[in-house]
Write a protein that binds this DNA or RNA. Sequence first.
DNA 1: TTTAAACATATTGTCGACAATAAGAGTTGA
DNA 2: TCAACTCTTATTGTCGACAATATGTTTAAA
Lengths: 227, 227
Amino acid sequence: MLPYAPEQGTLADIASHRLAHSIVTGELAQGQKLNEAELAERFGMGRGPLREALRHLEGMRLVTRVPNAGARVVVLDRKTLSDLYAVREALEGMACRIAATQMTDDEIAQLSALLDQHEAQIKKQGGKVYAQNEGDLDFHFQIARGSRNQMLMNMLGSEQYQLLRMCRHRTSRNAQRTGPALQQHRQIVTALAQRDGELAEMLMRRHIQGAWQSIDEMIAKEEESAE
Amino acid sequence: MLPYAPEQGTLADIASHRLAHSIVTGELAQGQKLNEAELAERFGMGRGPLREALRHLEGMRLVTRVPNAGARVVVLDRKTLSDLYAVREALEGMACRIAATQMTDDEIAQLSALLDQHEAQIKKQGGKVYAQNEGDLDFHFQIARGSRNQMLMNMLGSEQYQLLRMCRHRTSRNAQRTGPALQQHRQIVTALAQRDGELAEMLMRRHIQGAWQSIDEMIAKEEESAE
DNA sequence: TTTAAACATATTGTCGACAATAAGAGTTGA
DNA sequence: TCAACTCTTATTGTCGACAATATGTTTAAA
């Protein structure tokens, strides 16, 4: 389901996946230096594949590299996240508009079923898990798939997806926007089912704006308490 | 001016730049197999840095890699380009809207001067150079800069930028859309100067739609004559 | 005490050689 | 003639060692 496949293939791919996971979950702190020799040893491989993995992660914007000075985990500051959400709004809005004409009835039904599943999960676990769980992102990715635009899927999937997950883990402590989010998702699916692309786009844009607003507040609090 | 820097730094960076250039200019044909040993020898370096460069180019979507089967130059078929232009429309539209509020008067004046420059160049060279030249892309990139959104700049700059240049070279033989393009650029600058983001976005979206329409026709002819 | 230069250390950048895998040619059997 | 199999060859994947560069520390001079 997740666009980033399990560990298989070349060692560089494995390292890339494991590193991405560690970065996204916060196991590797933001801005932390990534020592090639140390990581290579931990993963049981040579430095060659690991360097390739770092170059790949650099392309995904999960790490930043400086020549002769090594790689560091990217730092998601307020401005970066603001930029990310602005881009997301444009891209996912477009995805929604196109998906309204391209998705099959069956796919839309599946989307609806996915939301049922989320709702059940919320009820069971007390509502605190939705927004920070992968479920929310699955929903967004399915819509991207519905646009039939491969480039869009790549951008939202392999790149932004990871940054978003990273952001989730950072702000998961005090996340409670699950109720409105699910409701907004429902509205979007309804618009899709009615084949109303304009409405679907507008709802998605609002949804993402709301998400950003919520996250922005959290970051503000975080920065405040950090002083 | 161009977002992709000159040849300096590590060997992997140099190889990455040279390869990107060769791919974009069509020197390396689409779909062509990229032999590591051969390229490493041509560039006078070992295979290590070259492999890193290929991983980087993979991230930029200029090459596609299959494990144990090597890398190939990406193939820009009709669908891929269509997807690319759809994404561009969304992103550059957004860039325009934000740039209308963020760019300084000075920057807008510079943008206007850039167009004067283009106009002079067209008069001198007979109008056939504009659309396929870098000038057009410079214009678009300057607006992306005006949005102050670093992520947007990265996306439009280092990634899509290259694919677009590639597309230009492919369809440059029969390019003649320079007149309307310049005029549309003028309209966009006017809207920016009036700080009318909505209008600027609309004009940019139309501009890109028109460009795609033009390119789509060319591809259709090309595929026709190829049979 | 501060600054700067020189050294020692750690880390990155690069190369060459070897192992593993895939692609192709050639052979053998039906 | 075609199919499947084997062997050869070419290419990719990986490792370990060395060179180049940056970092941190010590030492010496102002």
